[in-house]
């Protein structure tokens, strides 16, 4: 089952290495991973999506929590967190199919980033499900290349206070 962890960490070299190493040595595969500084530039936020059963997820969380650089780890899987993911897609496009592609882009509020002689590059953003739907719609045209950020997650207002405010030192 896909698990979504949010880790709040020190923003310093080596944190990613330690975090990844914690997963690697136990054979836990990382599905996607995003990192960026938080409102406090000395602190980073990781969103980590991974495929683990309950026991492994509990273990992963506590192994991460043991790392010195890590302030907190939340398994937000069950809280229906807000997720955003961005995809860049190169799609086969001929004069005849361009119009259809523009229509799909419009429907998904995607951007057309570039148009070439026989392909187009589209950027879509949204929940992972929405991106899947976007790709399904484009697939018949011929997908040539994909780059995807992986999910960034945040808990709903009702679910929790800011994870960042939990940071003490």
């Amino acid at each position: 089952m896909l698990r979504i962890f949010i880790a709040i960490t020190d923003n310093e070299p080596g944190v990613l290495d330690r975090l990844a190493s914690t997963f690697r040595r136990r054979g836990f595969n990382i599905h996607s991973l995003t990192v960026s500084p938080t409102l406090d530039p000395a602190v980073s936020r990781f969103t980590l999506v991974t495929d683990l059963d309950d026991k492994a997820a509990r273990a992963a969380k506590s192994f991460l929590e043991r790392l010195v650089n890590i302030h907190s780890v939340a398994d937000v899987t069950g809280t229906t967190p807000l997720l955003r993911d961005t995809v860049l897609l190169r799609v086969a496009a001929t004069g005849a199919t361009q119009a259809g592609l523009f229509q799909i882009a419009n429907l998904f509020q995607a951007e057309v980033l570039d148009v070439g002689a026989d392909s187009m590059v589209l950027a879509g953003s949204g929940s992972p499900e929405r991106i899947e739907a976007f790709m399904t719609a484009l697939r018949p045209y011929g997908l040539l290349e994909m780059g995807r950020t992986g999910a960034v997650a945040m808990q709903r207002c009702a679910a929790a206070a800011s994870l960042e405010t939990a940071v003490s030192f």
Partner: peptide, 8 residues
Amino acid sequence: IDATEVGK
């Protein structure tokens, strides 16, 4: 004292 050991 080490939470990772519990239930491991």
